[in-house]
Structure formats: structure tokens, C-alpha cells
């Protein structure tokens, strides 16, 4: 099935985020070739022009490099990937904290809740 995109953000940015996550999870490794614009379009059910825009955006972020006549590749510059990893972490945390605060939780409560949650989650993972 065509993958679903949420309605709140531009499709090309959602695709950027998706590729970044694939890199973080190691599904795409440094130096890996991304699918061609058309193949990526078919896989995700997205207009090839939108995929081009996604690749241009990733290029601007230096996360991918386009080699003429060869395709688009994930950068092998680990510093950039490390920065991206850090940045996504910060974004995710600030979203989480903002919505917790909006519900009236204090920083202290958030910290404790998170600690307890992680202890349980890691406990059940190691079982």
C-alpha cells in the first residue's frame, strides 16, 4: 500500500524525516545509495518531483551527496550524521517536554516519570 503521510507537514519534509530515521536505525548506512527518484516515488507513492525536492533538501543538510551519473548516496562524514542524531534527539525531547508541560507536569515529575519508565522498559527488555 501507499505509505501514509500526515496532513500537518509538507510531504517532502516528511520524506526527509523518514530517510533520516532510516539512517539512524542503520537501515541506510553511510555510503549507501538511495533509490532513484522514480523508484523512491513508486515505493512511497509520491510524485517524483516531490522526491527530488526531498533529495535536494537532504543535500542542503549535507546528509546525502549526489554524484553525477551515479545517484544519491548517504554521506560518509560521521560528524554530520552524529550532529543529525543529536539534533533529532533534541527535537524529540523538546516536543515531549512541551506537551508534558502543557498538561501541567513539573520538570521534576517528568524526570522521575521518565526514569521509572526507562527502568521498567529496560528491565523487561533484558528478560
Amino acid at each position: 500500500m501507499v505509505e501514509t503521510f500526515n496532513s500537518s507537514a509538507p510531504i517532502y519534509l516528511q520524506l526527509v524525516e523518514r530517510i533520516n530515521r532510516q539512517i539512524l536505525r542503520g537501515e541506510l548506512k553511510p555510503g549507501d545509495k538511495l533509490p532513484s527518484v522514480r523508484d523512491m516515488g513508486i515505493q512511497s507513492g509520491v510524485n517524483p518531483n516531490t522526491v527530488s525536492r526531498t533529495y535536494r533538501e537532504l543535500e542542503g543538510m549535507k546528509i546525502v551527496e549526489t554524484r553525477r551519473g551515479q545517484g544519491t548516496f548517504v554521506t560518509e562524514n560521521h560528524e554530520i550524521l552524529q550532529n543529525m542524531r543529536e539534533q533529532l534527539k533534541q527535537e524529540e525531547i523538546s516536543h515531549f517536554v512541551a506537551s508534558m508541560k502543557a498538561m501541567g507536569y513539573s520538570g521534576h515529575e517528568i524526570m522521575n516519570g521518565l526514569k521509572t519508565f526507562l527502568t521498567h522498559a529496560e528491565g523487561s527488555e533484558s528478560e
Binding site: M1, V2, R38, G41, I42, G45, V46, N47, P48
Partner: peptide, 13 residues
């Protein structure tokens, strides 16, 4: 779904 994907696959933009 097959029509949307077929369209992306076979048009020549």
C-alpha cells in the same frame, strides 16, 4: 493504489 503507483511508474515527467 495500483493505479496511483502505476501512474508514477509509467509517466514520463
Amino acid at each position: 493504489d495500483s493505479i496511483v503507483k502505476g501512474l508514477i511508474s509509467f509517466i514520463d515527467l
